[in-house]
Design a protein around this nucleic acid. Structure first.
Length: 583
DNA sequence: ATCGAGAATT
């Protein structure tokens, strides 16, 4: 990272106070030999805090390891800021700390997405004569990735290696590789893997699995299998994760023969499919509409002694919903409860989505009300799903009420919530509401092009072409390249308003900007010229379409047929229409 | 005693 120096972070540890924490200095004698079983004693934050207070009053004090164990337990319950507070208390009480403790605190800050505070712990290591370890920097790197500071994360790894601060291990490399892969930089992760192969720290199965999985997720199964073969050649011991990634990748491409091969290959290596393996297959089948096959796989897994879990059931439920059989999904939901598998918020979201897709909004709303009764809590996806469903049936008033409820008592709206709202408002002509909301959102720095596509589309469809165009222009000023949908939406807007020259120049512009038009773009522009009876120019685009292997859709072809009926001479100008089987 | 990879929802 640029300008990285320990001095910079000196004396900037934020004091996080906690009113819950009040320390008592009187010591209780005779606690020597008292054993503390942190895991059994701590079930919630209150338990942790009160145990901490008992511990600091003991004489002699419990070892630092016990404090570490306590903090670790708190981290597993996601009480990161409380870990920091208790650590501050320990310091005030001058309770000795060690390397492990500092690493845990550093990690807590990183998990809070406060890598700035995490860096401010570094001077403590120096002051206390404690050496940094790979663990320290791995946590920091993870923290930087969590804040999407990819360059800083990679730079920190390089700095650690270059300045011999400590020898990066497989975990540190793996953390960087994983951070890169999860953000779409598979090739960079692959380069790092190659770098490791030539360096001192040889990649292990974790490192390979990260890249194998990323390649599979990219749909690049061939490269993933090549890497698998490299692993075999290098005698890297393959494991269940390796095969699960490959099986998932094959399922998502519908390569069921490959799935079978991988299954037998892994079993030959004494690696047995687990609940994750089976669930991936079940989900893949469900997504292809083959829910019966998925249920068959579920039976087989039970026969093999592998019990389906909540995720397996959720996949099946979603499979039925995708086929429009929400009632069957509901039955699975009830079976799940009978088997004492508690539905989670995703189960509810799947069912709510199922009901919405069948326009059974009342059912969806009812289910929303039931969520808290069963000890779950609606999340952002729940509300987004309901909002979409309510808009779908045109109940804009209900949508507004639900959004208000969300703002009052619900989870934080995200970009998807806002897209749904804007799309809904525009769709039903509530332009004022939409524009107001869009202006409110200006400071959020949303950088997802599909969000702007919704806005541009809404403005175009509501006669606000100039505003749409200025949002389009804004994209380049915030460094967000328009995608094929953005251009197509703009072109549609121009065509609706009869601005064919603008439509045409936008078509050329997208090509120049490295974003070639697709089938839809051409259909839109052909329809535009057709509706304005500009047959000869239309012909140019029909020709271009044919050259690029695109074809007309039914509605454009239908329009064309009507035009030909009224004006047969059009046929003379468009030989492509009959010679290339365009209808 | 602290840091790592794989499954489901809008």
């Amino acid at each position: 990272m640029r300008g990285f120096s320990l001095r910079k972070y000196n004396n900037c540890i934020p004091f996080l106070s906690s009113s819950a924490i009040r320390c008592c200095y009187s010591s209780i004698k005779g606690n020597a030999g008292v054993t503390i079983n942190v895991e059994n004693e701590v079930k919630c934050l209150d338990d942790a805090v009160s145990l901490f207070h008992r511990m600091v009053r003991m004489n002699p004090l419990p070892s630092v390891a016990v404090f570490c164990k306590l903090f670790d337990t708190m981290i597993s319950m996601e009480h990161y800021s409380s870990v920091v507070s208790l650590f501050q208390e320990m310091r005030k009480l001058r309770i000795p700390i060690n390397e492990f403790m500092l690493n845990i605190v550093t990690n807590s800050y990183c998990l809070m997405h406060r890598s700035d505070c995490a860096f401010s712990v570094l001077p403590f290591y120096l002051k206390s004569g404690i050496l940094f370890s790979g663990v320290t920097f791995t946590s920091l790197i993870r923290g930087l990735f969590a804040e999407n500071r990819l360059k800083d994360a990679v730079e920190l790894l390089k700095k650690v290696a270059r300045e011999n601060i400590c020898e990066p291990d497989q975990i540190m490399y793996g953390t960087v590789m994983n951070g890169l892969c999860k953000r779409g930089h598979t090739q960079k992760a692959l380069s790092l893997l190659r770098l490791m192969e030539h360096g001192n720290t040889k990649p292990d199965v974790y490192n390979y699995n990260i890249v194998v999985d990323a390649l599979c997720k990219d749909g690049n199964l061939v490269a993933a299998i090549n890497l698998l073969n490299e692993m075999k050649q290098k005698n890297i011991l393959l494991n269940i994760v390796t095969y699960n990634s490959l099986i998932d990748g094959s399922c998502k491409l519908g390569q069921w023969e490959k799935v079978k091969t991988l299954f037998s290959e892994m079993v030959n290596l004494n690696i047995y499919p687990n609940v994750i393996t089976f669930t991936m297959v079940i989900d893949g089948l469900c997504k292809e509409g083959k829910v019966e096959d998925a249920e068959e796989v579920m039976k087989r897994m039970v026969e093999k002694g592998v019990e389906p879990d909540i995720i397996t059931y959720n996949a099946i439920m979603d499979g039925y919903c995708l086929r429009g059989q929400v009632d069957r999904a509901r039955r699975i939901f009830d079976i799940m409860i009978d088997k004492c598998i508690e539905p989670d918020i995703i189960s509810y979201n799947i069912l709510i989505n199922g009901y919405c897709k069948e326009k059974k909004v009342a059912k969806a709303m009812q289910l929303l009300g039931e969520i808290s009764q069963r000890g779950s809590k609606p999340n952002t996806v729940t509300y987004n799903t309901i909002l979409q469903g309510v808009f779908e049936v045109g109940r804009t008033g209900d949508a507004k009420k639900i959004f208000d409820e969300m703002l009052r008592v619900g989870p934080t709206p995200n970009i998807c919530t806002h897209s749904t709202l804007l799309d809904g408002y525009f769709k039903y002509g509530l332009v004022e509401e939409a524009v107001l909301l869009f202006n409110e959102l200006a400071r959020r720095e949303y950088n997802d092009v599909s969000f702007y596509n919704v806005v541009i589309n809404g403005l175009c469809k509501n006669g606000k072409l100039d505003e749409a165009h200025s949002v389009f222009e804004k994209l380049s000023s915030i460094g967000l390249p328009p995608d094929v949908r953005t251009y197509t939406t703009m072109i549609t807007g121009f065509c609706i308003h009869g601005l064919l020259d603008e439509a045409k120049s936008m078509l050329r512009k997208m090509e120049d900007n490295g974003c070639p038009p697709n089938n839809v773009t051409y259909r839109v522009i052909v329809q535009g010229f057709l509706r304005c009876s500009k047959f000869s120019e239309m012909e140019t685009f029909v020709k271009e379409m044919a050259d690029r292997g695109f074809s007309l859709d039914a509605s454009t072809a239908g329009l064309l047929v009507n035009v030909v009926r009224e004006n047969p001479s059009v046929l003379d100008m468009t030989p492509e229409l009959h010679s290339k089987n365009m209808y």
